[in-house]
């Protein structure tokens, strides 16, 4: 909900996060170099650096892809979502270094343009096992570059959240390309069972998490889609003051907030990046998104001026002490009289 954009939104917490992250990157590369030289002193520094950055980027990509489903499975992981973009951009920088070193070492010493060499040095495009694996890595890097370049909120607003999200979901394609880049690359040259075991473990972990989170949400959505008419939320005592209870209605989620002896219901989906508003709280009279702090007034779902974001509101009623919410959303930003609970 920024009125203007700053180059990068850093605060103290993010600075600490970046410091820890880049310290980890430095330690990983140093440790990788140390262990490799110890066990295989014949390895050249270029090969070593290519391997260190390649394995590190792969590890970071696995971590990044685990955060989303973990946060959907258990709310305690939500905190990890906050800095995922910094982690993503850092991962791209590491992967980019791997790509540039590869290009320099294997494709820049001939008399053809390195990019021409990358695409033409191995022409087995119709073969599975001999497929030019470096090309797969190149396209994965291209996707990661597009994601890193558009990671700022300016692009989120310029491209619209829908397009932006679709673009950023290409990370799954990048992941698939990276896995095959490793399988058809280093695993062909070094038929190492340990290496393959580690890769398979990572793949099982990431896909297991995504499948489980998807199954869990699908189940909730199916249960919710059976509800028709007004949906029971519970009693007002079920909701902590300045907090919300999330209800599933027709496949969508509604956040019912309690504040100053009143109740208001809004869509659970933040306009910024679809963050879960119902997991945030009321700060200065406004619902505050837990992901990046966008704010909305509970009565009309509008962001306070000068901001312009709006979410839908919902009608509420109370029968015999039980709160009910209407499954039909009001127009975005439409005022809805709060339900007074005394």
């Amino acid at each position: 909900m920024s009125a203007s954009y700053q180059g990068v939104l850093w605060n103290r917490q993010k600075r600490i996060y970046d410091f820890v992250l880049w310290s980890f990157i430095a330690v990983y590369i140093a440790l990788f170099a140390f262990l490799n030289y110890r066990f295989d002193p014949r390895i050249t520094p270029e090969t070593l650096f290519i391997r260190a950055t390649g394995t590190l980027a792969l590890l970071m990509l696995h971590v990044i892809l685990s955060i989303g489903p973990l946060a959907r499975i258990d709310k305690r992981f939500l905190i990890l979502l906050y800095n995922r973009r910094h982690l993503g951009v850092s991962m791209f920088l590491v992967a980019g270094t791997h790509g540039v070193f590869n290009l320099a070492q294997f494709h820049s010493m001939g008399n053809v343009n390195p990019f021409v060499s990358l695409f033409s040095s191995n022409m087995h495009y119709t073969s599975f096992i001999n497929f030019p694996f470096q090309v797969l890595g190149f396209f994965a890097l291209l996707i990661l570059f597009m994601m890193a370049a558009t990671s700022h909120d300016f692009w989120l607003n310029t491209l619209t959240p829908r397009l932006w999200k679709s673009l950023h979901m290409l990370v799954y394609v990048a992941y698939a390309l990276v896995i095959m880049h490793v399988v058809l690359g280093v695993l062909q040259l070094e038929h190492e069972p340990t290496l393959f075991g580690v890769l398979l473990f990572g793949l099982t972990w990431v896909s297991g998490l995504h499948l489980y989170a998807g199954w869990l949400e699908g189940k909730r959505d199916r249960e919710a889609s059976h509800t028709e008419g007004w949906v029971a939320v519970g009693t007002s005592d079920d909701i902590e003051d300045s907090r919300a209870k999330i209800v599933f209605v027709g496949g969508e989620r509604i956040a019912v907030f309690r504040y100053n002896g009143k109740l208001s219901a809004v869509s659970n989906v933040c306009k910024h990046q679809n963050g879960p508003l119902g997991e945030g709280k009321i700060v200065d009279g406004c619902i505050t998104c837990p992901w990046h702090g966008y704010q909305y007034r509970p009565e009309d779902g509008c962001a306070p001026p000068p901001f312009k974001e709006k979410v839908s509101t919902f009608k509420l009623k109370m029968v015999n002490g039980i709160i009910y919410v209407s499954p039909k959303p009001n127009a975005e930003g439409q005022f809805e009289e709060p339900l007074v609970i005394g």
């Binding site: 799954y172 890769l199 793949l203 995504h210 499948l211 998807g214 949400e217």
Partner: peptide
């Protein structure tokens, strides 16, 4: 969309990785 993507991706990736190895 997430659910569909992963249901398609998982078998492809496992078959690709295991047969590649």
């Amino acid at each position: 969309r997430h659910r569909i993507i992963w249901r398609v991706l998982v078998p492809i990736l496992f078959i690709g990785a295991v047969s590649g190895y």
